[in-house]
Design a protein around this nucleic acid. Structure first.
Length: 486
RNA sequence: GGCGCAUUCGUCUAGCGGCCAAGGACACCACCCUCUCAAGGUGGAGACCACGGGUUCGAAUCCCGUAUGCGCUACCA
């Protein structure tokens, strides 16, 4: 019989989704799709203080941009709705009450001041856990008195006082923890909201989640979760703790290292598939040579067994290469479309108005081989949109040339181009190449001068196509203007 | 401090006891191609497999210790 796969991505709406989170989502999705299972999105909004409005929408937008589709989620509902923890409070209370009734949990009335003091004195002793279990064994009378006092309690879980808890992590194998070193952690906060430990566990159970993929930072709290499952007499899911994504200096990736928000990469001109491919490779590999995967190939080949154990640095050089590769792989039509879409969303200063489809189609092949990102395109073709171009006249004069000979070349080119028909790259090239012989100059000399004359730049897209894109009238005017400056 | 995880070229990685005096990719360098820039092609440099002990006929691969890095140690996730 085949195993069931229900995998969930459970982000907190506390900021823009970052690349680490999204990589987890990609792994979740890959696993679900590969096994014909379900991919579920669940919003873990139990921390009211840290919640930021609008971030749930950003998470959804990020997943949509990447083309990751989910089967159940806050926006589309599903059999286990709702998919927002703030709307599932009764479920958590029910579990907490049950645990209290079964003496597996207790109310704690300690003030934050007392907790801080206990923590401080205990940390000096070294090794001791942070909470002294003060309220674990208080008498019923005392409990009643505190209750009457109006103290709003939290609910803590009674960790076993001895023994060990072992998890069989899908990536790291067996990991064992000493129960004595684990606190009686808070399950329910005094505001009535659950902590992550209770909430995610109740939901994973209720939603019949089979595989939990999450960041490595959760590994130390697994004994809490496993003990909670035991107390609730629920079957725990499979766990896989993913390696974290690092900054170039090996510290945790954060804003000061540059872009960490997934959607920033859209704005920087990366293709969604580049992100999916690249992020998947950050922590997973198929073999010793394959790096470029279509989404179908990713779904086919992905496996938890081949996820690596150690953290990986987010290397933008390789990201750039991969993006360039995928841009080059597109048809001219698709690139043109992508460019238009990108320029429409993020209008570049170099281009006064969104070009027509026709113009975009003309631009695409001009820049395709030269792009690392979509953002690189506009500066390369800026000359096409400038009413007049600026450059230092000396730039026109190529090596071993002088003003007079350069001027002769430009005038000859202008005269010839004036009558050329059709005014297209191929005949333009044929014409200019034949001129090279007649004028007794090097190809680089003539072309170099013309490049500066027509684009104002020493570095530009291929000359003949550029001239075609410029059109006869503008080209003639530009070349005329150039020769007059000499 | 305690607990846990990790450790192969600058970076991402292959390697699950002999095929490894360690393979691929990005970045870097050189050459070729070439109208500039790219792209592409070819080649090069780059890892005593963190260190020290074992186990074994044989270890990057297994075990132990040390070091380093990272994570956790909240009424945050």
């Amino acid at each position: 019989m085949s195993e069931r796969f229900r995998v969930r991505f459970a982000p907190s709406p506390t900021g823009e989704p970052h690349v680490g989170n999204i990589r987890t989502a990609i792994f979740d999705w890959l696993l679900a799709r590969q096994n014909g299972g379900e991919f579920i999105v669940r919003i873990e909004d139990t921390d009211r203080a840290r919640a930021i409005d609008g971030t749930t929408e950003l998470i959804i937008e990020a997943l949509k941009w990447l083309g990751i589709e989910w089967d159940e989620g806050p926006d589309i509902g599903g059999r286990y709705a709702p998919y927002k923890q703030s709307e599932r409070l009764p479920l958590y209370h029910k579990a907490a009450n049950r645990l209290i009734a079964e003496h597996c949990a207790y109310k704690c009335y300690c003030s934050t001041e007392r907790l801080a003091a206990v923590r401080k004195s205990r940390s000096k002793q070294g090794g001791a856990i942070g909470y002294d279990r003060h309220c674990r064994d208080i008498s019923d009378d005392e409990r009643q008195r505190l209750e009457l006092n109006g103290e709003t309690p939290v609910v803590r879980f009674k960790m076993p006082l001895h023994g060990e808890t072992t998890v069989n992590d899908l990536i790291r194998g067996e990991v064992t923890f000493d129960n004595r070193l684990v606190d009686d952690f808070v399950m329910l906060k005094s505001d009535g909201f659950p902590t992550y430990h209770l909430a995610h566990l109740v939901d994973d159970h209720e939603m019949e989640i089979t595989h939990v993929l999450r960041g490595e930072e959760w590994l130390p709290s697994v004994p809490r979760h496993l003990q909670l499952y035991r107390a609730l007499k629920w079957q725990p899911p499979h766990f896989a703790h993913l390696p974290i994504i690092l900054a170039p200096d090996r510290s945790k990736l954060s804003k000061r290292h540059g872009a960490t928000a997934l959607l920033d990469y859209r704005q920087m001109g990366y293709l969604p598939h580049t992100m999916v491919n690249f992020l998947t490779l950050l922590g997973w590999s198929l073999d010793d040579k394959t790096e470029l995967f279509s989404r179908e190939a990713l779904i086919e080949h992905f496996s938890i067994e081949r996820i690596s154990k150690s953290g990986a640095i987010f290397n933008t050089d390789k990201l750039d290469w991969m993006n360039g590769h995928y841009i080059r792989e597109m048809s001219a039509e698709r690139l043109a479309e992508a460019l238009l879409e990108f320029w429409n969303a993020y209008p570049p200063p170099e281009i006064p108005a969104l070009p027509s489809r026709e113009v975009a189609l003309q631009i695409a092949p001009l820049v395709q081989e030269r792009l690392k990102t979509l953002r690189d395109a506009a500066p390369l073709v800026a000359f096409l949109f400038k009413p007049e171009i600026e450059y230092d006249a000396s730039e026109l004069i190529q090596r071993r040339m002088d003003a007079a000979s350069t001027r002769r070349c430009l005038e000859a080119a202008r005269d010839q181009l004036a009558t050329l028909d059709p005014f297209e790259a191929e005949p333009i090239e044929a014409l200019l190449r034949s001129m090279v012989e007649n004028l007794d100059v090097k190809a680089g000399q003539l072309f170099g001068s013309l490049r500066v004359a027509t684009t104002g730049q020493r570095v530009a897209p291929p000359l003949f196509q550029s001239i075609e894109a410029l059109g006869r009238e503008r080209t003639l005017n530009l070349v005329q203007a150039a020769s007059e400056r000499l």
